[in-house]
């Protein structure tokens, strides 16, 4: 879930209004709210939930990878709908690994196994898809995540091709950037992308254990992080999202935590530790943040979704 439009509005407002309600606020803590999900395949149960996204109504969509399906919940975790079965035909899913909902309410699902992005309406009715296996523009080798810019262009991380591809809202290829490597601007198995309030792309450069920011043309702007366990270090930085204040939240997979940074990449705080108690994680894989400061985490190894709230002053 990316809230760049809200954030962009906020940025504009703060440029002209000092009493807009968008003034910078200090992040004090992240508070656990609730959780749902147990291991299983019945409606509402989860098996390896790897992706989480929100629509504009605050409903929660989960890429239930181990069950080859998408599930839809209310904001408090009540089951609403599901779709998808294992396969490669239209509407079937093979390792749905992430998902995102665009401004029109269309649910975009990248499939690792089928090298395509399928698009569904909010009830799971198939709309269209694109992508085949390959290395050329418009092709994928394990598409890992999707997000949208302010024009509803779709950004797709292309895991084994070490790049980000940009498509129009119909799935036509527009541009791409990224090559395999470890230098600034290069990528090593990218797993997620988010769009900040200025329209720049923030990439979870997972196996370089770092975050990189690019402008909309793919020009490198900023990098932070390295491999490790300290604050500001990562053991597989595999998902990224922004809150309304443009803080960057990074899911730190093998450290079983989420780290929060300001927009300059300076560490702010972290939450989570290894375990299965409330607020703990077992290999978290994705994060979605609503405009009201509610955070949802796909707690992959614990087969659950956890909900948190941002506390500010």
């Amino acid at each position: 879930m990316k809230i760049h439009r809200f954030a962009f509005t906020c940025l504009l407002a703060t440029s002209f209004l000092t009493t807009s309600g968008c003034e910078p606020r200090t992040l004090t803590s992240i508070e656990f709210v609730s959780q749902w999900g147990t291991m299983g395949s019945a409606p509402g149960e989860l098996k390896e939930p790897i992706g989480v996204a929100l629509d504009t109504e605050g409903r929660v969509y989960v890429a239930d990878a181990g069950n080859s399906r998408i599930q839809k919940f209310t904001a408090d975790g009540r089951f609403l709908a599901q779709w998808g079965t294992q396969g490669s035909s239209t509407g079937e899913l093979d390792r749905p690994i992430h998902l995102a909902v665009n401004s029109k309410g269309l649910v975009h699902v990248p499939e690792y196994g089928n090298d395509r992005v399928q698009v569904f309406d909010e009830n799971g009715v198939f709309q269209f898809s694109w992508g085949t296996k390959g290395k050329d523009q418009g092709e994928f080798d394990a598409p890992g995540a999707v997000d949208f810019d302010g024009n509803d262009h779709t950004l797709v991380t292309d895991f084994y091709n070490h790049r980000i591809q940009v498509f129009d809202e119909n799935g036509n290829a527009i541009s791409q950037f990224g090559t395999k490597g470890h230098d600034p601007g290069q990528l090593h198995y990218p797993t997620d992308v988010a769009v900040d309030g200025n329209g720049n792309f923030i990439v979870a450069d997972a196996y370089n254990h770092r975050i990189q920011r690019f402008d909309p043309t793919g020009k490198f702007l900023q990098v932070w992080g390295r491999q490790g366990k300290k604050q500001g270090e990562f053991e597989v930085a595999n998902a990224v999202a922004l809150d309304a204040a443009q803080r960057v939240y990074v899911v730190d997979f093998d450290n079983h935590r989420v780290q929060v940074f300001d927009d300059s990449g300076k560490f702010a705080l972290e939450f989570g530790s290894k375990g299965n108690a409330a607020g703990q994680f077992n290999h978290p894989t994705d994060i979605a943040i609503d405009s009201d400061g509610t955070i949802y985490i796909a707690d992959w190894g614990n087969n659950r979704i956890q909900k948190f709230r941002i506390a500010e002053r």
Binding site: R95, G113, D254, H283, W300
Partner: peptide, 15 residues
């Protein structure tokens, strides 16, 4: 293999 992005990827390649 603990990382799903890797294990699902290996699964895909082996298939």
């Amino acid at each position: 293999l603990a990382c799903p992005f890797c294990s699902y990827g290996l699964e895909k390649k082996l298939n």
